[in-house]
Design a binder for these strands. Structure first.
Length: 837
RNA sequence: GUCGGCAUGGCGGAACUGGCAGACGCGCAGGACUUAGGAUCCUGUUCCGAAAGGAGUGUGGGUUCGACCCCCACUGCCGACACCA
């Protein structure tokens, strides 16, 4: 098996991509072809997701996404828009930091190097980027404004501190993200990961959940992305139910607590969230999250030791395995609470399968109708009661597993016989009238933790003063510059390395002048990327994060195309930050991205690309071998852009042959003595019709990102152009060059010039097609008999059903399938006739 | 487990609202030009069949004059989330 090689021997007048591309890179640079006039009319903001500039350099996944954006942006420019297509670098974060530690080069040295390499590669690929507006999240002139964004959140009361657990690797002495924990162990050193509880900064994104969800219906986004966000926000309708705790020492039975208290949750009332209030009669025990504050209050002395032991055990477990392990464990608190429906006391347990961060951190367990509660009840021998019966079942039908389906209530006193959906409302109403329930909408979305106990990020601009408390750094004092310190390795303290740098750590309090301490956590990289699109048009401005007039002119983003791996986090945080800035009167819109399209993933020979498999494609080598235009076009030819593609080494030669043929066609029609090679010196009518059909098709395919079919259409046209070794006419080739420009911009520039064009092909406009040329005089009608194709007939364009039927039956090859008079004729004008015998 | 996506020739993939399945490309076969070709050009290429014809879009059913496309049930692969009450 050998990889195909490009056609060789550049003698005479053949396509030499390396030469062409070098010439045009230089000219684009000289002429400023890729510069956007920001005051230009008809603005079109084409945004692509900025990359993390890794040391390995650009990978095909990046290039696939960028090329898809570039084609769209170039097309919009050809269509007459002023296109702004900036790019930048998302270079902060734990990934860079770990890599820097590994190779022993300081990130402040490493990142600029990587960025320079990325720019070189991106330019080599022919992207239409105006680098004057590039952003780099690690530069103080950018993160000054990231810190400013944080302060806006703080001012609105949307940034706050609370303690939360983080994963901690005792060996690496560092905080780990959930994805860096592999089955309970650190992904780098394999040490068992533990939990630490630290004070951290959070953003109240959960407060925006209803708006973030509601707006989705109005956004022109890929449906898959919107659905992912809906699931992530996770709205669920249910109820809070109140279970008063009884004191077993004073209450002999249920009677004394039968009178429901005032309904306000107090020290000895457990509030649970449930989406199945209809099953409350089957709630045979309660479970609290081990961290639930009421645990301390209600645990009985006899059970305290066991409960504490269980809480310690849970606290030590890393965050990932706690959620992944399905085996049920728990401890009985010794306390009982009154089921507000049955009035009977039920035991209160703690278990790690109940999460403090969701709902109220407490559940009513209905083992008959919830798998988790069922499993738990089985382990601990707790009662399982059926309260819903499906078809053919009754109150006594035994439960081999939790029953989830439709059905009617049983064992539920006066609610017996109601359907599940009716019962939900009725039971909540009933309990509400006794002040034991309230209908509630709950969201899964939890607040966004932006603290990172690391070095490589923007310092959170907060000071702690013994006298004044928490003090935000005044905006005039921004940026809080990340100091260039040689020792940025995290240590055992769990506090950022920044805390070790006295001269940075201690500063005067801006309010009272006393010595204050800096916040030493840096912020999440998702904060950097949550507003970068606002910065681009104003990237040259030092005085403001984003200029009001430019923002009004360019935003919201016209078209955003990116990977669905950012469907939830990045895109949701960006929407949230934009909404907050809108509420503060700082931007005139609340949704940042008018349209968003998710592109697919690129794989290699049917398998995912990975370093361990050794099947990673290196763009540099392929561009070297085939040329950037061929590589770009091939990437887009692999499959539908929104579906992704399978990169096969063997196919690229086909695209190269196509571009060779385009070059040869342009060469042939400009050669001395042969500019008008067709016999009568005019373009061929058939070729011209095909040309106009191709202009139409390519112009329709590009906006719907159907790049592969657009390329196929151009290939078809080139085949028609050259069929039978005919010499193409000048006017047949020139429009093709424009159609090809978004895909193969260097080649298009060269041929545009060669065919007598002036300036850049990008400013020469998009060819128009003549609809009149597309209609044919005769139509070919497919003839079916009983739904099977039996032949075709040619008829005049507007022939009616009878004429077509007559023509069809006159054809013996068709007529032989029809005995006697047809029962029915189905005629689709201009396309098809179905004869039903 | 839940949510989403996908399943079409030897291969990557087309087929827009139910109307010629297999566009385009790779590969393969034959031919032309050549001292030569792994360059270029031309022709052919879903399968079975000499042909007439038949079969065919993961599997099983359904709706329809007509289904890759719609409905029901299932299988497999890919992705995201994952004890969310």
């Amino acid at each position: 098996m050998s990889a195909p090689t490009p056609p060789s021997a550049p003698d005479r007048d053949t396509y030499d991509p390396a030469a062409v591309e070098a010439i045009w890179h230089a000219r684009w640079q000289e002429r400023g072809t890729h510069r956007t006039d920001l005051s230009g009319a008809n603005p079109f903001f084409q945004l692509m997701m900025f990359p993390y500039p890794s040391a390995e350099g650009l990978h095909v996944g990046n290039l696939y996404a960028f090329t898809g954006n570039d084609i769209h942006g170039r097309f919009q420019r050809l269509k007459g828009h002023t296109v702004f297509q900036p790019l930048g670098f998302d270079a902060f974060g734990i990934h860079s930091e770990n890599y820097a530690l590994k190779v022993g080069v300081h990130p402040m040295e490493l990142i600029p190097r990587n960025v320079a390499n990325f720019r070189r590669q991106l330019d080599r690929a022919g992207l239409m980027v105006d680098w004057r507006y590039a952003v780099d999240t690690t530069r103080p002139d950018y993160y000054k404004w990231t810190q400013w964004v944080f302060l806006q959140l703080y001012k609105q009361g949307l940034a706050y501190r609370k303690s939360a657990a983080v994963n901690w690797c005792p060996s690496c002495k560092t905080v780990l993200a959930n994805e860096q924990v592999e089955s309970g162990n650190c992904e780098r050193c394999g040490t068992e990961v533990t939990q630490r509880v630290l004070e951290q900064w959070f953003c109240r994104i959960s407060e925006y959940a209803p708006r973030l969800l509601g707006n989705l219906d109005r956004l022109d986004w890929s449906e898959t992305t919107k659905q992912a966000q809906r699931n992530w926000i996770g709205r669920s309708e249910g109820a809070h139910l109140l279970f008063p705790v009884t004191d077993p020492r004073t209450d002999a039975g249920a009677a004394t607590v039968a009178d429901v208290p005032d309904g306000e949750p107090d020290d000895d009332t457990i509030t649970v969230f449930t989406t199945r209030p209809d099953t409350v009669f089957g709630a045979t025990y309660l479970v609290l999250a081990p961290e639930h504050p009421l645990v301390d209050v209600i645990t009985t002395p006899e059970r305290r030791a066991a409960v504490e032991a269980y809480r310690v055990r849970t606290a030590q477990q890393d965050l990932v395995s706690r959620k992944v392990t399905k085996e049920k464990t728990g401890a009985f608190t010794g306390a009982y609470a009154i089921n507000p429906a049955t009035q009977r006391p039920i035991p209160v347990w703690i278990a790690d399968y109940v999460l403090m961060e969701y709902g109220t951190g407490a559940i009513m367990a209905v083992p008959g109708h919830d798998e988790r509660d069922f499993a738990f009840a089985q382990v601990f021998g707790l009662p399982i009661v059926r309260v819903v019966a499906g078809d053919g079942e009754d109150a006594r039908t035994p439960l081999a597993e939790a029953f989830h389906g439709e059905g009617r209530l049983v064992n539920s006193a006066r609610f017996d016989g109601l359907r599940v959906d009716e019962a939900k409302g009725r039971i909540v109403e009933w309990l509400a009238s006794r002040k034991a329930a309230r209908a509630v909408t709950n969201y899964r979305l939890h607040d966004w933790c932006i603290s990172r106990q690391r070095y490589w990020g923007p310092p959170i601009p907060i000071l702690y003063c013994d006298a004044c408390g928490v003090v935000p750094v005044p905006e005039a004092q921004l940026p809080v510059v990340l100091p260039n310190i040689p020792d940025y390795r995290p240590d055992d303290s769990g506090v950022s390395p920044l805390a070790r740098h006295e001269e940075w750590y201690h500063v005067p309090c801006p309010r009272c002048g006393a010595v204050a301490r800096r916040e030493t956590d840096v912020s999440d990289t998702f904060l950097d990327s949550a507003w970068y699109f606002l910065r681009y048009p104003s990237a040259d401005r030092d005085d403001v994060p984003f200029d009001a007039a430019r923002t009004r002119h360019w935003l919201p983003v016209t078209s955003y195309i990116g990977g669905n791996e950012h469907a939830v986090l990045h895109l949701l945080y960006a929407r949230f930050v934009t909404m907050v800035l809108h509420d503060a009167g700082l931007v005139p819109f609340e949704e940042p991205f008018a349209t968003f399209r998710a592109h697919g993933l690129i794989i290699r020979e049917g398998a995912k690309m990975s370093k361990s498999k050794g099947n990673v494609i290196t763009p540099d080598a392929l561009i070297e071998q085939w040329g950037a235009d061929t590589f770009r076009t091939y990437l887009m030819f692999l499959g539908a852009f929104e579906e992704g593609g399978d990169y096969r080494d063997s196919g690229i030669v086909g695209v190269r042959r196509f571009l060779d043929r385009v070059w040869a066609s342009a060469a042939a029609c400009t050669r001395d003595g042969a500019p008008d090679g067709a016999p009568d010196g005019a373009p061929d009518a058939g070729v011209l019709r095909k040309l106009h059909a191709t202009i139409k098709k390519v112009g329709e395919d590009i906006p719907r990102l159907s790049y592969n079919t657009a390329i196929a259409a151009m290939m078809e046209y080139v085949n028609a152009l050259r069929a039978g070794e005919r010499i193409p006419h000048h006017d047949e080739v020139r429009p093709l060059v424009s159609l090809l420009a978004p895909f193969a911009p260097h080649l298009a520039e060269a041929l545009h010039e060669r065919l007598g064009g002036t300036g850049s092909v990008m400013d020469a406009g998009w060819p128009a097609f003549d609809p009149a040329l597309l209609v044919e005089d005769e139509a070919e009608i497919v003839v079916q008999v009983a739904g099977k194709v039996r032949g075709k007939v040619r008829v005049p364009r507007h022939a009616g059903q009878d004429a077509v039927a007559a023509a069809a039956l006159a054809d013996p090859a068709i007529a032989k399938f029809v005995n006697g008079t047809p029962k029915k004729l189905v005629y689709v004008p201009g396309r098809l006739l179905n004869v039903v015998p």
